[in-house]
Computed example of a mutant assay.
Amino acid sequence: MLTMADIGFDDAAALLHRHGLTLLRVADGEPIPGSYWGEREAGIIGTSVYARGDTPVHSLLHEAGHLIVLPPERRAAVHTDATDSIEEENAVCVLQALLADALPGVGLARVLADMDAWGYTFRLGSAAAYVEHDADDAWAWLQAHGLIDGQRALLFPTGA
Rank of each mutant, 00 (worst) to 15 (best):
L108K: 10
G65E: 10
A100L: 00
L142I: 09
H62R: 12
D136H: 10
Q96A: 00
H133K: 05
I44Q: 10
A77V: 06
I44V: 15
D136F: 05
S35Y: 11
H58F: 14
L24I: 14
A102E: 11
Q96H: 04
Y50P: 09
L124V: 04
V111I: 15
P72Y: 05
T80Q: 09
R40S: 13
V131R: 07
S85M: 08
W118A: 07
L70D: 09
G53E: 13
C93K: 07
A91N: 02
R74Y: 08
G46H: 07
L108G: 01
V78Q: 10
A27E: 15
D54H: 08
A102W: 01
L147D: 05
R123E: 11
I45P: 01
V111T: 11
H19Y: 15
A135P: 05
L99V: 05
D137T: 12
E30D: 15
R75G: 06
A76P: 01
D28L: 10
A135N: 04
I44W: 07
V57R: 06
R52L: 08
N90F: 00
L67R: 10
G107M: 00
R74M: 14
A76V: 14
A82H: 02
L21Y: 11
Q96P: 00
E30K: 15
G65L: 11
A138P: 08
L147K: 01
L23P: 03
C93N: 12
A51F: 11
E89M: 05
T121Q: 07
G43I: 08
A27R: 15
A113T: 04
A135E: 06
L24T: 15
Y130Q: 09
S85H: 02
W139F: 08
I68Y: 02
V78I: 14
D81V: 14
E132P: 06
E41V: 05
P31H: 13
E132K: 10
L142E: 07
E87W: 00
A138R: 04
R18F: 03
R40V: 12
L70V: 05
V57W: 04
V111D: 00
